[in-house]
């Protein structure tokens, strides 16, 4: 008898340990693959660079210094300078800030707006669903960069307008996700129970449906972030959206074209940054999916 109790104790203990270490298990699965750790380091470095840009950059990114025009990489200017003598390294450091601000703001705005619309469509059903989802289908008819180009072209230059343009272009993904999640969660008995005890629609939406959709949302945000940064770089490369005072990686690549044969670093370095950051966010997205959704582990 005492044995059995001890046994049960053991089992209970081991089980409670398992629940306590839920976070640890998440961290362990996430960091299992070395490439995810690499991605996390790149993202952390980018975030730090973006926050501390004023202190980290050796020169003012817009400071013209004609004496140092078109320098090759050297000890004074690690990545060289452009025609006006602006330090490439400093400009890349400030570019990180622009990329991350646009990326994060767009991601949050489209996640909030998109998931609200998606929840509405899924929860209300009927005409509301039809209107919202067909509108999203129509938005999906445009390639993301074309829709963003059109909107940024109409709205004019400015960071705010780029964020608005990219947000609209990114809405459909979130709306579809949330609509699907809401429809799935709505069928559960505990939602019926909620209705039976007379709780309001808003309460059901925000306390039950939203938390249940949290995981796929996190995964989607991380993956979408890479795509948004890539799209912003594309817009800046074309010279549409952000004004010339704003330092952007895409803009830096574009202005490096004329000096490609003599000063390739001007175009190479900022493009490499875009690739590394986008790569890292995509890898992180996959890592998060593996850690949060065991069913898909290793398949994608």
């Amino acid at each position: 008898m005492a044995d059995t109790i001890a046994n049960i104790d053991q089992i209970v203990q081991s089980q409670s340990r398992a629940t306590v270490s839920e976070w640890q298990r998440f961290v362990r699965t996430l960091t299992q693959r070395k490439v995810v750790v690499f991605a996390l380091i790149i993202i952390a470095l980018t975030v730090i660079t973006a926050i501390f840009a004023p202190w980290l950059s050796p020169y003012d990114p817009n400071e013209k210094n004609f004496a140092d025009s078109l320098q090759q990489p050297n000890r004074k200017h690690w990545l060289g300078t452009d025609l006006l003598g602006k330090d490439t390294l400093s400009r890349i450091i400030w570019g990180a800030r622009t990329s991350l601000i646009v990326g994060i703001a767009t991601c949050l705005a489209s996640a909030i707006l998109g998931s609200t619309l998606g929840m509405l469509a899924g929860y209300m059903g009927g005409v509301v669903n039809t209107i919202i989802m067909r509108f999203m289908d129509a938005l999906m008819g445009f390639p993301m960069i074309v829709l963003a180009l059109l909107l940024a072209g109409v709205l004019g230059n400015g960071m705010q307008n780029v964020i608005i343009a990219l947000t609209v272009a990114n809405l459909p993904g979130y709306t579809r996700l949330m609509c699907g999640m809401t429809l799935a969660v709505k069928e559960n008995d505990y939602i019926l129970a909620q209705k039976a005890i007379g709780s309001s629609n808003l309460r059901t939406l925000f306390l039950h449906i939203l938390p249940n959709s949290f995981q796929p949302m996190i995964i989607m945000i991380s993956t979408a972030l890479g795509g948004i940064i890539l799209a912003e770089a594309g817009l800046s490369f074309l010279g549409i959206g952000l004004s010339h005072e704003e330092v952007t990686w895409g803009g830096l690549v574009a202005s490096g074209y004329s000096y490609l044969s003599t000063h390739p670093m001007l175009a190479f370095a900022p493009g490499l940054c875009v690739m590394l950051v986008v790569f890292s966010f995509n890898i992180l997205g996959d890592g998060l999916r593996d850690a949060l959704d065991p069913r898909l582990r290793g398949v994608l």
Partner: peptide, 15 residues
Amino acid sequence: GIAIPVFWLGYLLIF
């Protein structure tokens, strides 16, 4: 391939 900015890839190839 998913992460590379195509315009930058273009410049690399041109170079």
